[in-house]
């Protein structure tokens, strides 16, 4: 390792954040709105990547963490009239608590059983949302009114429905989560996670408590996904059960696979790429699920490492 190596990744990440900040002033309205949404969903993908990329645990149920944040924030605003920071915190707390419980149960299993168990818990969560349709709005969902989505800071108040404020809030959340992920994966703890992914038995033999390390990773991952969900509810004002369906468990997997599992910027690239592929193709076909399906198969067949994973392997070994 050379002297400059720790500085390079931080420079790259700050550069990406600066680029996204600059884009806010030049993008036309449509792409401006789309990019805000992509950044929020990229946070979801980063949370997923934390577990799938670094610990090697393939979950098929992350939609439940996203929607825990979504409903935690959305329902407290909608029914209890909480203000924005309190609702966001409620979303985070719901996600963290759910992740802790699910982690304690699901981590007793490994491999294929882990995928099925997470998928089933997510399905239970989805059905519970449908069952309590009188509070959650069921598959119709709820629309959070504009008046409730105002962030009051001292004397200033920020209207989260304003496109610029929305973009900047999304960027702020994205930047914080990106830097947190970067710090985690470069820390000692991040290395332990990778060691568990590569060889759990050996890590155990070296004296690490793999269960509690994995549990912490599930909670961190779930909380990040919940942050994305809570931000989605508050920024875009819509809370619906489709976000809890199995499709929203598979989308982050697709984004992470596409961008590159176990790369910090991969989730952003994957989400951005997939969103624009769907956006462009939806111009002449409504069959976007077909594209998702073909992309998944081509990715596992030919690019199991994803875009950034391949770049890291070929050229940039230092990429975190």
């Amino acid at each position: 390792m050379t002297e400059a190596s720790p500085a390079k990744p931080y420079a790259l990440h700050l550069g990406v954040i600066a680029l996204l900040f600059a884009l806010s002033f030049v993008l036309p309205d449509y792409h401006h709105g789309l990019l805000a949404r992509i950044m929020v969903l990229a946070v979801f993908a980063m949370g997923y990547n934390m577990l799938f990329g670094y610990v090697g645990l393939l979950s098929l149920g992350h939609a439940m963490f996203f929607s825990a944040g979504l409903y935690g924030a959305g329902l407290t605003v909608y029914h209890l009239g909480w203000n924005v920071p309190a609702a966001f915190a409620a979303g985070l707390a719901c996600g963290a608590l759910l992740a802790l419980v699910i982690g304690l149960l699901a981590l007793r299993t490994t491999g294929v059983a882990f995928m099925i168990v997470t998928m089933m818990f997510a399905q239970v969560f989805y059905l519970v949302i449908l069952y309590f349709a009188s509070w959650t709005g069921g598959d119709q969902g709820l629309v959070v009114q504009q008046a409730a989505r105002v962030l009051v800071l001292g004397s200033a108040s920020l209207d989260l429905t304003n496109p610029t404020v929305r973009y900047m809030s999304a960027l702020a959340l994205f930047s914080i989560v990106l830097l947190i992920t970067l710090a985690i994966v470069r820390s000692r703890y991040g290395r332990v996670l990778v060691a568990i992914r590569e060889n759990e038995e050996r890590t155990k033999m070296l004296g690490y408590d793999t269960f509690s390390n994995k549990l912490i990773a599930v909670v961190v991952s779930g909380t990040i996904c919940a942050a994305s969900g809570a931000a989605y509810a508050l920024l875009f004002g819509y809370v619906g059960s489709s976000f809890a369906s199995v499709q929203y468990s598979i989308l982050p997997l697709l984004w992470v696979l596409l961008g590159g599992a176990a790369t910090t910027l991969g989730p952003l690239i994957g989400t951005l790429f997939m969103y624009y592929v769907i956006d462009i193709t939806s111009g002449f076909t409504s069959a976007y699920l077909l594209i998702v399906g073909i992309a998944l198969i081509l990715l596992v067949l030919f690019f199991p490492k994803g875009i950034l994973g391949s770049i890291r392997q070929r050229w940039l070994g230092w990429l975190p």
Binding site: G111, L299, V300
Partner: peptide
């Protein structure tokens, strides 16, 4: 075409069969 090339790796085949699910479903809808 797909599963054999993946050497029946459990995780890769799950992702690939999810892909098949979407393709078949969308073609049926179309």
């Amino acid at each position: 075409l797909v599963l054999r090339r993946l050497n029946y790796n459990p995780e890769a085949t799950i992702v690939a069969t999810i892909g098949m699910l979407y393709i078949i479903q969308q073609l049926a809808l179309t």
